[in-house]
Amino acid sequence: MTTPLLSVSSLNKRFGTTIACDDISFDLWPGEVLGIVGESGSGKTTLLRSIAGLIEPDSGEINYRATGGEVDVHLMSEPELRRLQRTEWAFVHQHPRDGLRLNVSAGANIGERLMANNWRHYADIRTEALKWLAAVEIDEARIDDLPRTFSGGMQQRLQIARNLVTSPRLVFMDEPTGGLDVSVQARLLDLIRSLVRDLGLSAIVVTHDLAVARLLSTRLMVMKDARVIEQGLTDQVLEDPQAAYSQLLVSSVLQV
């Protein structure tokens, strides 16, 4: 564990005159879960999407240590990037509808990544899909149902299963629990945490919810106005915030 899995340096992205990411640099180490917190519009999601190769940053380098050697995400050819995105990486969208194929069954949603990686044996794909439905606590009898008949929490779990089926090394999550009620949130967080631990994944989790960050992440970055204003171990940042905005953020969590 001497080299980082992912290394971001001097990343900049602006939309017209709006600056979304201003000179952001950080490293992600293998097996680490990095939380990115901050208020709406602080550039968290733009940062995540730039790293995942979904949007092109204006400048900066993103180096990823792939199994085949180190690559710069934005200098790769598009077919190579797509191969990375469907094998070693996974992206869990905030809205399951963005990450699922709603007009095909749950089984096909899970199987899609397998088929994209040249699985051509129906029974094997089926077995794997059933295994993953069980892993994310969805009734196996629902394998042939369309995701639109699922509840919001089930859709989100299905999206996670669909992403993790090819055992990625790095998972990007954009507000994975946004829009879910608290009890469903708690179970989903529990599930993500155990999957991440069992599979030894590295992950970057964007959230505005400090509770989510505390549960999932080992390290935390706080963003405000397109800049990283503070980073450190999660407990350290949450217990002893240094920057004024971090202090405000921590103190504004509702206590029940």
Binding site: R86, R101, V104, S105, G107, A108, G111, E112, R113, M115, A116, N117, N118, R120, Y122, I125, R126, I143, D144
Partner: peptide, 12 residues
């Protein structure tokens, strides 16, 4: 990969 999703749906 997507082409096989259609065939998968048929069989399922």
């Amino acid at each position: 990969g997507l082409m096989h999703v259609k065939l998968y749906e048929d069989i399922s």
